[in-house]
Design a protein around this nucleic acid. Structure first.
Lengths: 141, 141
DNA sequence: TTATTATAATTAGATGTCTAACTATTGTCA
DNA sequence: TGACAATAGTTAGACATCTAATTATAATAA
């Protein structure tokens, strides 16, 4: 029989990982950023500019939440907002130079996180694990 | 090579599971409860009475957070707070009759959640999966 | 015994997150 | 063309959550 404490464990792991990410960001001198900000920045680091609505879909947050998150990133100097010329309802978000400068740190932190999470896991275990995660993720749709 | 999107997936799964739990609670007529409230109630459903500090440790939240959560549960009529006689700094939290009445719903919801999460997983897969989760959880300590 | 330290809980203030309501603009259709 | 519907974004208000500070009580040490 399945024990069924998996979801509680998933929550714990997610929270610990988020804490580690925030700690690593701070050790890179990046303050005031939580994972949701990070998700926005990661998407923008592709070089694309995105609308508020697109960002909301990508990071799985509501539009009002994205308003708050982006405004903070503007205040921190990582992104800028500019109104579209074709459709003045639309706002485009772009990385600033300071925002572009995050790339290296983000890459390093991602490596660090994976090293910790996958520490004693073989490649096969890791692949199998992620396959099951994908399956569970689909089950929950 | 490990892909390393596992943490993002974990977050998504955790959030979807939490949404499902809240939806199931509502369909059982239990409103205004989020997973953290649920955790507190699950611990109290053992029959034990716990202090605020103990609850905070058990659900991995800070004491101020537990103050807010427990106060809401008091307002909803699920638990009561009573000061200790031996040490008047301490407050004990106990389930009310209404709180005790949650047991059946909680059990059912837990079964429902597991059925969805583990839908197409064999028992071996599930066991292996949870073992890896345990390992990752330890890695993050 | 009294002063200092430690502990339990709450309050204060900030922030991310949500839903609902609102504003402003664009699209559609009769 | 003009009225209604749809869409992008923000504002308002609520709540869970955190850290820091505060209150009240208990424990310890000089």
């Amino acid at each position: 029989m399945k024990q069924g404490n998996a979801i509680a464990l998933l929550s714990r792991i997610t929270e610990k990982a988020h804490k580690l990410i925030v700690k690593e960001l701070e050790s890179h001198g990046i303050e005031g950023i939580v994972p949701s900000h990070g998700s926005i920045l990661v998407h923008l680091l592709t070089g694309e500019k995105y609308t508020m609505k697109e960002l909301a879909e990508k990071i799985h947050r509501t539009k009002p939440t994205v308003t708050v998150l982006v405004d903070k990133l503007v205040n921190l100097g990582y992104v800028t907002k500019e109104k579209s010329n074709e459709d003045s309802r639309v706002t485009f978000i772009t990385l600033t130079e300071k925002g572009l400068g995050l790339r290296t740190s983000f890459y390093t932190i991602s490596e660090t996180l994976n090293a910790v999470v996958y520490k004693d896991l073989s490649d096969e275990d890791a692949e199998y694990f992620e396959a099951i995660l994908q399956k569970i993720n689909r089950n929950l749709n």
